[in-house]
Amino acid sequence: MTRLDNRQIDQLRPINIKLGVVKSADGSCYLEWGRNIVIATVHGPKPMFPKHLADSTKAVIDYRYRMAPFSVSDRKNPVPGKRDKEISLVSGFALEKAIDLEQFPNTVIDINSIILSADAGTRAAALTAASLACADAGLPMKGLVSAVASGRANGEFVLDLTKDEEDTFDAVDTAIGVLMPQNEIVLMQMDGFVNQKDWKKIISVGVKGAEKVYELQKKAILEKYPLEGDLQ
């Protein structure tokens, strides 16, 4: 069965990744995922202020997920709401699993993901871009976080839902972040009603999708560093 946008049920939207786009940041990533556009930047490790928030055993991750006011059809209030804060918190936990924080005690790593254009699955796109920006900044990591949304729409278990599919009568939308290549789930948020059997299917579709995202992440990193050719 094909979907409204002529995709297979286990097919991702077209993804386009470019690293090192923001020169003032230590690491950055530009990501287009279908109609989503994300810019992620990494600043740090740098000293933590105020100092009582610092951890003397490891670095602290300050992850910010923000949607630009013009990213959706109605203007979004730029004041961070409950949704922004929650996504920032759980995505920060996912990145903490990936980065080796013990090397930088008493510091903070600022990670900002800004959504310039939104069309469902933005938290997955933002987390994917943020993990690539961390790799671009040269932070020591156990692996990359590959995130994707999977779920149920019109009775089918589909990968990478669009806005129309999220609004169907039986919709279940699950954002999954997987630490690759260890295959460890580090983020999972679900919206909708589902029984246990169907939920297991949704997770397996999501993990397979994350593997596809991981291949694209790998390709993007290797593209930044060509081993041959003229000086750039």
Binding site: A137, G138, M141, Y225
Partner: peptide
């Protein structure tokens, strides 16, 4: 396993990765 993006440097009894970006230690 590698910890960073970098160039692999491997000999018969030694392995390391030369990072392509990073901060000063």
């Amino acid at each position: 396993y590698s910890q960073v993006v970098g160039l692999l440097s491997e000999s018969t009894d030694y392995i390391s990765v030369v990072a392509l970006n990073g901060i000063y230690k």
